[in-house]
Design a protein around this nucleic acid. Structure first.
Lengths: 101, 101
DNA sequence: TTGTTCAATATGTATATACGTATGAATATG
DNA sequence: CATATTCATACGTATATACATATTGAACAA
C-alpha cells in the first residue's frame, strides 16, 4: 500500500465527517464524483492509498478545498478554520468577525 | 490512469516550483522522502496519479502542509496566505485553482 | 564544429497495489 | 418472511511505483 497510513488518517476522517455532515451515503457521494461505493468505503477505511485526482474530486464535492499551506502559517490557518468551523450549510466568508459560541 | 489530469496539474506544478525554489534536485527530494528520483519525475510530469501518502510526504518535506479548507473560508485563507507570504519563494505555490474545463 | 564528462531528468520494464465489478453482512421496515 | 439501504470484502484488471538504463543539456577541450 502507501507509505504512512497515519499521515493520511486525519484527512480521510475529515472527508468522512464532511460526508456524514451532509447526510450523504457512500453510494451517493460516489455517484457525485463517478467512483463506485466500494472505493469510497476503502478510502474512508484507510485501506488504500487513494490517488490525488480522486481525493481532489471527493474533497471538492464535499465543499473542502485542499490548500497547501506553508508550515509557518499553519497555526494561523487552523485558528481561522476553527473560528469559522460551523457545520451548517454555507457560512459566508465575510462573516468572519462574528464570534462563535 | 487517474480521472482528471488537469485537476491535479496545478498542484503538481506547485510542488515542482516549491522544489526548485529550495534548490533541490528530484534526486535530493526523493532521498528526503524515500522515493526514487524516477517517481518524482513522473509525478511532476503528471504521468501518474500519485497517492495521497506520497503527496503528503513530498508536500511536507517542502514545507507545505495541505489542509482541507471549507469552501466558504477559502478566500479568507487565501488572503491570509498572501499576507504572510513574505519569507517564502518568490511566486508562492498555493495557487490551487479550478478544475479542468 | 565534434567529442567527453558530469548532473539532472526521463523512460523501459517488472511488480505491488489501487480501482471496478460483483457480492456479502448487517440493519431497518413492512 | 421479503425488500431496501448502507457499508465492507473477494477477485480480476489497470496502473502506480521501484529498479535499471537512457536521454538531455551544460561546460569544457581539442
Amino acid at each position: 500500500m502507501g507509505r504512512s497510513p497515519a499521515a493520511r488518517t486525519v484527512w480521510l476522517q475529515a472527508l468522512k465527517e464532511a460526508r456524514l455532515a451532509r447526510g450523504l451515503s457512500q453510494a451517493e457521494l460516489g455517484a457525485m464524483v463517478g467512483l463506485p461505493q466500494s472505493h469510497i468505503s476503502r478510502i474512508e477505511g484507510g485501506a488504500v492509498d487513494v490517488g490525488i485526482s480522486a481525493l481532489l474530486e471527493i474533497s471538492r464535492s464535499l465543499g473542502l478545498e485542499p490548500i497547501p499551506v506553508p508550515a509557518p502559517l499553519v497555526p494561523a490557518v487552523r485558528s481561522l478554520l476553527r473560528a469559522g468551523a460551523h457545520d451548517g450549510p454555507a457560512r459566508p466568508a465575510y462573516a468572519l468577525d462574528e464570534d462563535d459560541g
